[in-house]
């Protein structure tokens, strides 16, 4: 540490690598998950970097380091308790991901709700034509027999229904 205070970057990097297991051991006393222990190790390294000028080479290094690690580890534990006491977690409420494909399930549900609402708003003839021809995949003759609409009327109604849905759902 004394060499690091004097500006030796190589000694400093070596020292920081060598002390990581000790910091990890101190953090493991207070924290359970590897992620949290890693967070504490990083915080202790940053803290040590900021206060390295306070180390007195005439005094032993390990108690100094252990005191810094213990203090920051306990601080992290307190922050965790505070957060848990003040906040309610709902992992799904605002969940979204940078990868658009990862959001497909949630957005798919929302899109289905919007489509159902738009379908319900269509005139009866158009909705019936669309359901029979496009959703149930009947032939025009079968759909004509079921609905009583002519084949030509079904074609027109399907076309108008799709046009109306496009206009309604545009921009989603």
């Amino acid at each position: 540490m004394a060499a690091a205070q004097d500006g030796s970057q190589a000694d400093y990097a070596l020292l920081l690598r060598e002390i990581v297991p000790l910091i990890r051991a101190v953090a493991a006393h207070h924290h359970r998950t590897p992620d949290r222990i890693d967070d504490v190790v990083q915080d202790v390294l940053l803290t040590l970097h900021r206060i390295r000028h306070t180390y007195d080479p005439a005094r032993p290094f390990v108690p100094w380091l252990a005191a810094v690690a213990r203090r920051r580890s306990i601080d992290a534990l307190r922050r965790q308790f505070r957060t848990n006491a003040m906040e309610i977690r709902d992992d799904t409420s605002y969940e979204t991901f940078t990868d658009p494909l990862a959001n497909r399930e949630r957005e798919g549900r929302e899109a289905a709700d919007a489509l159902a609402a738009a379908l319900a708003a269509l005139p009866r003839g158009q909705r019936e034509a669309l359901e029979l021809v496009k959703l149930r995949e009947m032939s025009l003759i079968e759909a004509s027999a079921v609905s009583g609409q002519s084949v030509g009327g079904l074609k027109v109604n399907v076309h108008r229904a799709i046009k109306a849905l496009r206009a309604k759902l545009k921009g989603r």
């Binding site: 690091a4 205070q5 004097d6 500006g7 970057q9 190589a10 400093y12 990097a13 920081l16 690598r17 990581v20 890693d38 190790v41 990083q42 390294l45 940053l46 970097h49 390295r52 000028h53 306070t54 180390y55 007195d56 080479p57």
Partner: peptide, 25 residues
């Protein structure tokens, strides 16, 4: 050692320099 910790150590070492020691309390 995990990758972020390794990277952090490299970063801290790179930006370290000579520091003026604090006098005794």
């Amino acid at each position: 050692m995990s990758e972020p910790i390794d990277d952090l150590i490299d970063k801290l070492a790179a930006e370290s320099g000579r520091v003026r020691r604090l006098a005794s309390p």
